[in-house]
Amino acid sequence: MVAVGQMNEARRARRLRVSSVTTYRVVALVLVFASWEIAGASGLFFRGVIPSTVLIAQAFVRLFGDPAFYTHFAITLFEIVVGFVIGSSIGVIVGLALGINRFTGEVFEPMLHYLASTPKVVFLPILLILFGIGVGSKISLGAMSCFFPMALSVAAGVRTINPMFLRVGQSLNLSLGNRIRKIYIPALTPPIATGLRLGFGIATVGCLMSEIKLSNHGLGYAAMQSYNRFDIPTMLALLLVIFTLAGLGNYLIGRLVRLPGPTNRRVTALPPR
């Protein structure tokens, strides 16, 4: 009886906590919304700098009815996806090379580590000279941006593989290709997933920053065009689309790498080192 009473008490407390958390979240959203409206109407800022949310919603509707928006969207998506695929593929290969050979890792990893922390956008002028203002420079900056987190994540992941698996591979006389396919890649799913999630966000930033700086297409270009026309509601609607795209991509990658496929089952069965 006492145990049942305690369980009910705990359940009630948990329910109360959940409702308090929801209340806090709703209050925060209402506060942000109200602050935005008050700031816009207060006259503290130039007229139109902080437009009403109604105007932003109308801009959204206009945006979705405009065929040019879909062209910009498709181009940005293409740049991000291609840059992401190129950068993360090279990142996996380089990460494997650095992780598998200890000496190679000791030589090159510190250089990658420090280069990863530098602002990649400074390379944009070089990429613009090399690839022009078309999609090439955007894809290359996106690829360069997502290469670093992927390579470093995979290299660190290789070193956490249980050496017993590697010894089993050696005793079965597996070739390097087979070892990579049967041991390294399945065991590296979690670091690859981390690298993919980090890389996607950074590739998005890289592609959009290049579009903002110098371009004649894409969502970043469209946002800057709206800024130059002082069409702030459309600019904010485009920024919201960009943030939603980045968030959705991150979510989908997270879901994809968590799918219960045979590869992932093997990974979860690995004993902790």
Partner: peptide, 26 residues
């Protein structure tokens, strides 16, 4: 802490630098 920590983590992962046009107009 329970309500907002996840939100802060999501903001940390967002491409915040792309907000600069908003700050530029302000």
């Amino acid at each position: 802490g329970k309500a907002y920590t996840d939100w802060v983590a999501a903001i940390a992962a967002a491409p915040l630098v792309l907000l600069f046009p908003l700050f530029l107009v302000i």
